[in-house]
Write a protein that binds this DNA or RNA. Sequence first.
DNA 1: CCATGATTTGTTACGAGTAACATTACCATA
DNA 2: TATGGTAATGTTACTCGTAACAAATCATGG
Lengths: 337, 337
Amino acid sequence: MDMAIKMKNKRPTLQDVADLVGVTKMTVSRYLRTPDSVSAPLQEKISAALETLGYIPNRAPDILSKSKSHAIGVLLPSLTNQVFSEVIRGIESVLEPAGYQTMLAHYGYSKEAEESRIATLLSYSVDGLIISESYHTDRVRKMLAVAGIPVIEIMDSVSPPIEQAIGIDNQAAAYAMTECMIKRGRQKIVYFAARMDQRTLLKIRGYETAMTDHGLTPLCLKTHNASSFTMGANFLKEALAQQPDTDGIFCTNDDLAIGALYACQKSGIRIPEDVAIAGFHGHDISRAMVPLLATVITPREDMGRLAAEHLLSRLQGTPITQAVIELPFKIDIGESI
Amino acid sequence: MDMAIKMKNKRPTLQDVADLVGVTKMTVSRYLRTPDSVSAPLQEKISAALETLGYIPNRAPDILSKSKSHAIGVLLPSLTNQVFSEVIRGIESVLEPAGYQTMLAHYGYSKEAEESRIATLLSYSVDGLIISESYHTDRVRKMLAVAGIPVIEIMDSVSPPIEQAIGIDNQAAAYAMTECMIKRGRQKIVYFAARMDQRTLLKIRGYETAMTDHGLTPLCLKTHNASSFTMGANFLKEALAQQPDTDGIFCTNDDLAIGALYACQKSGIRIPEDVAIAGFHGHDISRAMVPLLATVITPREDMGRLAAEHLLSRLQGTPITQAVIELPFKIDIGESI
DNA sequence: CCATGATTTGTTACGAGTAACATTACCATA
DNA sequence: TATGGTAATGTTACTCGTAACAAATCATGG
């Protein structure tokens, strides 16, 4: 048994199994798919031979002849952000039980990288794609059109989508949280933004609109770098320098908010008495910490799950009934505003 | 241009491009790999045709004939745990620039699922595998042997590995932290364990050994469920019920520790005056929070990066020089012990 | 203006599995 | 025992890109 393995240095094929049994590979192929289509004595012999050689099916011929890989490409801007980890979790929770393999890729918020990543995923003949961001180059759109596979965009509920989008209304969410802070008496609210991707831009717009709608002056601190706790702390310092009477901080995500909050605690600034702080997304930590962080709770995992479910049903031929699926967000005022 | 796309409902092949130009697909194939091997006028025509049709290369024939996919399988027990997100990040940071595609899978800590996931990854002809956990079934070992591709195990530095392992000594790390707490005067330290996977078992052993080495009685609270902040809070309640004079808590990961810490804060238990709390891994949050969490800092991202680097060099033919690569951990006492 | 070699393009076969069609084996019945 | 029908197995062709070999084209020098 071990000898049989060591004698061939390449992985066994159906032909190897067939040779061992003394039949053609077609018979073995039949056995694998419908065991009863083969005579009883052969069933046993083939089963034993498969075991002996340790045969592992090979998807390549299938992909080649049927252009179906049973793999789904997932393309996200970053893996550094917890948001995307949770989205991946949601996607995998649906794809894996359905027998689909996830092909993961990221592009670091670069449009050129997005093009090349999509080409790569398509070169593996993925059966479908889940991508993020709302803006795509013509080249990307053309590749997707030519590929002729179902594509779902997640994160934003912006229209019009390439085919179908599942996400939240980031601008409305930012507007709602800003307004909530204003209604609770805050006047000098500063926005902390990082990455400056599409979604962040939408959130900024929501914040600025809410501020001006209430006759207040928006102030937005921006960085193209990734967000982090440290970045939140740095932004806090800068905000207080630029506008010493700052009484509210709204961050593009929880990381910045938590970083700012801890920085306040360290320098004796009371939350929320002196400064109100709000985050975005509602990660587990923000729902457990003391004080509880005010945040916009977004359904990250649901988004991934829903995207995967819709993709699968489209692979089964179900037509698109709703081009944009907008998921609800929830404002949680916690204890920090 | 648009017409050409819409007329064919399947993705264009090299033959389609060749037909459009009026040459054989071999010529187009040559152009794609070495453009100068084709005459100047053809270069232009082929380039234009590729653009017109939106040709995307197809890896399937290559995988079929050369059994090389340029894809690496990554199999982790879970995606729910932040630890693994960071490992994935490290892996991707190396694989992506090297032109390798990551095929992600997880198996929910189930040995049967691990077998089937590995079979799936192998069926895609992955060029190499990064897997975790230290124990594997015979079936898994046989599949890996037959597949004949490089395999790297991560997380634990246990020996002997299938081929090569990269990780930390979990038992020694747990021993070190426990001893550190004891030396700082703690006597009644309780261990909070979740998942009960290989690594957790090793950590428990480290903790118990340290306790008995110092003449103390270990007490370990266990759950097979995943860890969470809530679980940490529940464990705290149970620990105080079982052993009211508990003066130290050591958790199998930061989540439990943070959950327990916040639960203490809410019920007026002072950290570290009344109870010392320590976590494991040193996620960003534990390095930013107030009070700073005592934790074992582990190099998760480095582990992923290193695993990917070693895998790539082995794909280039470099032999294994070190079967077990043990990475250092660091005890950070923070402000919570 | 043709031979020679270099350059460019074409032809054939292959990889692993399977659909479609072809053949063989076997049993029961007339 | 021949025949029909069915069950079991075999044969061929196909998927797409490319290696290996073959052929055609071209330029150059004698």
